[in-house]
Design a protein around this nucleic acid. Structure first.
Lengths: 240, 240
DNA sequence: GTCTATTGTGACCGTTTCGTTATAACTTCG
DNA sequence: CGAAGTTATAACGAAACGGTCACAATAGAC
């Protein structure tokens, strides 16, 4: 899924430069040029990384850092500091920044740092998934997670990326009912803005591909007035 | 088989402490207290894991990291960093370290990390280790790893260095899907900052050289919206 | 240094996929 | 039964994505 980055920087030139380059690298970027608004966005926007200038109007970067961390927000922060303010750097790291960059900085270096920080987070979250098995099996339906492949009666089924993600999300907790908005949040991402109706379409497409009789589904079930669930009827846990 | 661990750390107390505790856990441990010697040992000693201090005489840990990785040494590295040198950590991960631990650390935590790293590697390489051979064969396609040579229908195919690396990386885990950024990280290196688009180009070149009908590939397959994979259809493990 | 092979980047085009809309079908409840 | 609300289905256009090619940049050989 596309990584989301928030840039908080009041200098318009730098802000644009940074945002543009990050977008170029296929990140989803939101910009902001004052501190208090930045804090707001950081708290609500579900970002994967924050690029934060220290010198800001309204509320300075260090304060934002402090407040985010005290609110248990663990989003990694890359701090931008003036060239010679060693003190800021130290305080920044104390406040919970994860890395810093002194102005003026090269774009290359910025990108490298961003990448490194994101990778670090990925590594940390990867560890939590160690115990999980790579396969889910439900009767004739088999989901091979790392291969992003679904087998039905031993034959591969061609699912698009979203279809797979949707199926996988529900199949991980068979029997649990998910509302459409829950599915939008989890599968499409928290920031996604769209109609709940969209989910119907994808469920429909999933069924035509998975179910013998799509209007009388065996795996992807409707829970009237609530949402959908994956059937837990023939559930057998994934391999050891 | 008993796992071999190399400890590179100049502080004698810490070095002994670590070595002792690892031996206690039934690992085979070798110690070393300076950087350049450590690099030598790492390159020649066939270890399963390296515990590496950043601050070292002769050659620092980051440099060792870098050199090992550029020599295609993929032994997992657990880096030890000072408490407040956040930057070191970032750079270390960039250089190819797999995990880090900040001093002072608890022995419990060290052992946990070591165990986790070894388990992770074991999982990744389990399939390869068993049949670890110099050749991969998939129908008419044959990859001779140490010769860096690819044969198609018994005839050599002329691949450039990057093309070969890319192919090999994917072919080692047929069926596994890799995102472009994953491929950039693994094939081009973690330090690399470049466009994901680049991967497309190389895939394209690979296909024109390997596939009978490049627009309908048999080996290097596109996974829409995600990345690429090497086909696992006709996968037969390399001979032993 | 020059020449060549390789690699990275940009532009364009075709295809796949997705979100939306419209309409039909179904469920629930009065 | 009929009405209101909810879901299913099919179809369409737009946008995202990948394939391809050409060219520029870079590295490597000589």
């Amino acid at each position: 899924m596309k990584r989301r980055i928030l840039v908080i920087e009041d200098d318009q030139d730098i802000n644009k430069l940074v945002a543009m380059n990050l977008r170029d690298m296929n990140y989803e970027v939101e910009s902001c040029d004052d501190g208090s608004r930045g804090l707001q966005m950081a708290l609500t926007g579900s970002f994967d990384l924050i690029v934060l200038d220290v010198m800001l109007p309204e509320m300075d970067g260090l304060e934002i850092c402090r407040q985010l961390r005290s609110a248990q927000q663990l989003t990694p922060i890359l701090m931008l500091t003036a060239k010679d303010s060693e003190a800021d750097r130290v305080v920044g790291l104390e406040m919970g920044a994860d890395d810093y960059l002194t102005k003026p900085f090269s774009v290359r270096e910025l990108l490298a740092r961003v990448k490194a920080l994101l990778r670090r987070v990925e590594m940390l979250t990867a560890k939590q998934q160690v115990v999980e098995s790579d396969e889910l099996r439900f009767g004739n339906l088999e989901i091979r997670i790392s291969k992003r492949q679904v087998m039905l009666h031993g034959r591969p089924v061609d699912l698009t990326s979203t279809e797979f993600d949707l199926l996988l999300y529900m199949a991980r907790q068979p029997g649990l009912v998910f509302s459409r908005s829950q599915l939008l949040d989890k599968v499409w991402g928290y920031h996604h803005t769209g109609y709940e109706h969209t989910v119907n379409s994808h469920i429909n497409r999933l069924r035509t591909k998975l179910e013998k009789d799509p209007s009388n589904p065996e795996y992807v079930l409707t829970v009237w007035g609530v949402g959908y669930k994956f059937s837990d009827a023939g559930a057998s846990t994934g391999a050891h």
